[in-house]
Structures are given as C-alpha cells and as structure tokens.
Amino acid sequence: MRMITIVLPREPKTRVQVELGLAGARHQEAELRRDDDLPTVFSETDFDGRPLLNAKGGLSAKHTRQVQEFLGQNFSRKLSLAEMAAICDLSAYHFARAFSKTFGVPPHQYVLGLRLDFAEKLLVDRRMSITDIADLSGFSSQSHFTTMMKKYRNATPQQVRARQGRSQANE
C-alpha cells in the first residue's frame, strides 16, 4: 500500500490522503493528477454548488452569476445545454467545458443536485406524495427520482422521509 496526498483544486488548503494498492497505483495516480477527474474520484455527493471564480478556462464572474440565477429559477423544468449556453452567448460545447471548470461538475450534474436538494426539502411534508415531489422537482418520473436519489444520496425518497421524521421527533 502506498499513501499519496492530493491538494483539492477548489480548496488549496485542504489535503486528502489516499491509500493506493500496488496493482492500481500508477493508473490511479495518473487519474488523480487530472483536475477533471477529482469530483468523480472523491464523491459526486459532496458537491456544494459553490463556483470557483476566475478558474482558467471557466466562466466569468458575471456569467457565473447569471447561470446560477437562471438555474435556480428553472431547474425544475426540462433544460437544454443550448439554452443554458445562450445565457453566456457561448456555444454548447464551450459552455459545457467552461461550466465544468467553474463549478467542478458538468451542467447536468449541477442541475441534478439542485433538483435533489429541492426534493429533500419537499419530503419533509408528508402530505405530498413522492410522485408529486418528483414531478415538482423536475424528474421525469418517480422511478427516475428514486434511482437518482439512491445513486447520489445513498437513500430512497422514502428512507429520507423516514429519517427526517425521526429527526423532527427527536427535537
């Protein structure tokens, strides 16, 4: 086993130690040197939505603010990459790359995070069905919502609702 230390690009003061097995050490080290791979290596659920301003090749501060505002208001409806790119007057390809550099995740992943955060807040209200919450949050179906919640939050909507119910009862 070999320990390596990685400095996270968005948080230069934060150092993460990773233990690598000998068989995959060279392959893993090569992957970990690339900034684009760090979010997937460390967990996609840890994304906090804060942009890295002035990232080389990223969006300008003005465009970052405009995109955040637009997505904050429109995340629950179907969005196209071209529509998001039009806000910044960029091509879809250039926008996707710049967005990823700025936010650390692709646009789709960012929107998914907004939808899941909103859905978790709605799950507190037990009068709303999970199907209605999925629809209000912008998911195509309850099944899609459940799959994404399980994949990125490690719990089904029902489990999140039960957990929130227990935490409210303990207060």
Rank of each mutant, 00 (worst) to 15 (best):
T146R: 02
L122W: 09
R163A: 13
D132V: 13
M84T: 06
N154Q: 13
P51H: 00
S143L: 03
T40A: 15
N154R: 14
R163L: 11
I4P: 09
L59W: 08
S76A: 14
F118G: 02
N54L: 12
A85W: 00
S167I: 13
P51F: 02
R34E: 15
F118C: 08
P51M: 03
Q17A: 13
M1E: 08
M148W: 04
H108M: 09
P9I: 05
A96N: 11
I133P: 08
D135A: 15
L71H: 01
Q28M: 14
E69W: 05
G24N: 08
D89I: 04
Q142G: 15
A92H: 04
E69D: 12
A82C: 02
T64I: 00
N54G: 13
V18L: 08
G138N: 07
L22A: 12
F47I: 11
I87V: 10
M84V: 01
L114E: 05
H144T: 06
P12C: 08
L20N: 06
R126S: 11
R115K: 11
S60G: 02
F42N: 12
R166I: 12
L53D: 10
M149G: 05
S76E: 07
A119R: 04
V67P: 02
D117E: 09
S137V: 01
L136T: 03
R77A: 10
L32I: 03
E29Y: 05
Y110W: 03
V124Q: 09
H144S: 08
E11W: 05
S137G: 08
T146M: 06
G165R: 00
D36Y: 14
A134Y: 04
L123V: 01
Y152N: 02
L122V: 07
R163V: 04
K101Y: 10
M84Y: 01
P157D: 04
S143V: 06
T156K: 06
H94M: 09
H27E: 07
R127N: 15
R163I: 05
S100Y: 04
Y152A: 06
Q159L: 14
N54F: 13
G138R: 06
Y152D: 02
G24A: 10
N54A: 14
A169F: 08
F47M: 10
H94S: 13
E83T: 08
A86I: 06
N74M: 07
F70S: 10
A55T: 09
E29P: 02
P39H: 07
E120A: 15
K150W: 12
D135G: 09
G21F: 11
A61H: 03
V124R: 08
D35N: 10
A96S: 15
L32W: 05
M3L: 10
Q142L: 04
Q164N: 09
P39Y: 09
P39W: 02
T147S: 09
